[in-house]
Amino acid sequence: MPAIIITVAVVVIVALWATAQYNGLVRLRNLVQESWKQIDVELQRRHDLIPNLVETVKGYAKHESGTFEAVTAARTAAAAPGSTVAQQAAQENVLTQALGRLFAVAEAYPDLKANIGFQQLQQELTNTEDRIAAGRRFYNANVRELNTKIEVFPTNVIAGMFHFAKAEYFEVDDQAVRATPEVKF
């Protein structure tokens, strides 16, 4: 009789542990998905601001059509649904580079830089970029936690049984971002 009680107790404890691990993995997976959706909201905000910015600059720099087309094409690609995290990151990197060229064009037009509408759009875009960066840090922290839990024993047994997959990091691939800033006095 005591052997049966001990066996049942061990089975119950193992079942409770497995359930807790499974639920923890589900919570982390949902947190990763939620944090990605928050980034997606900010990316959509960014994508909505860009046409207004392009139109404002177009009014001043009509002969820069190549730059405008590059920004528009990059925005269209980045705003397209159905991308993986890695694909979205690559598309956002292209868009960031195109926006850099757009701001370089804007630098050549002092009247444009003084335009209140342009300044407001530029500030909104800067605020959005900051929120995207914060969201990316939050998302990547959640991805790290999920991936670690999926890889660490004994949770990896439960993850394997229920086909939990590692999540992708949202990484910046822009060399300008990764470069060491040059400080001159």
Rank of each mutant, 00 (worst) to 15 (best):
A106G: 02
K113Q: 14
E55G: 02
A106K: 11
W36C: 05
R101D: 12
V41S: 13
I13A: 15
A18W: 05
L53I: 05
T19W: 15
A74L: 00
G100K: 01
K113N: 12
Q33K: 09
P110W: 12
A104W: 05
L25C: 04
A61W: 00
T96H: 13
G117Q: 15
L31D: 09
L25R: 01
F103N: 14
A20Y: 15
F103A: 05
Q87I: 10
A104S: 15
A20E: 05
A73R: 12
A80R: 08
V105Q: 03
E92G: 07
A77S: 08
A98P: 04
L112R: 03
A114V: 08
E64S: 06
V105A: 05
D40F: 03
F68M: 00
F68C: 03
V12D: 07
T56F: 08
A90F: 09
A98D: 12
L49T: 10
V57K: 02
L28R: 03
H47A: 12
A104C: 11
Q38A: 04
Q44D: 14
D48F: 10
E55N: 14
A79I: 08
A104M: 14
T84Q: 05
V85C: 01
A61Y: 00
T96E: 05
A104H: 14
R27C: 09
R45Q: 09
T56D: 11
N93M: 10
K113C: 08
L31G: 07
Q21K: 11
E107N: 12
Q21L: 13
L31A: 14
F68A: 01
A18M: 06
L49Y: 08
A78L: 10
G117K: 13
S83M: 14
T72L: 01
A15D: 10
G59H: 09
T56Q: 12
P110A: 03
A15S: 10
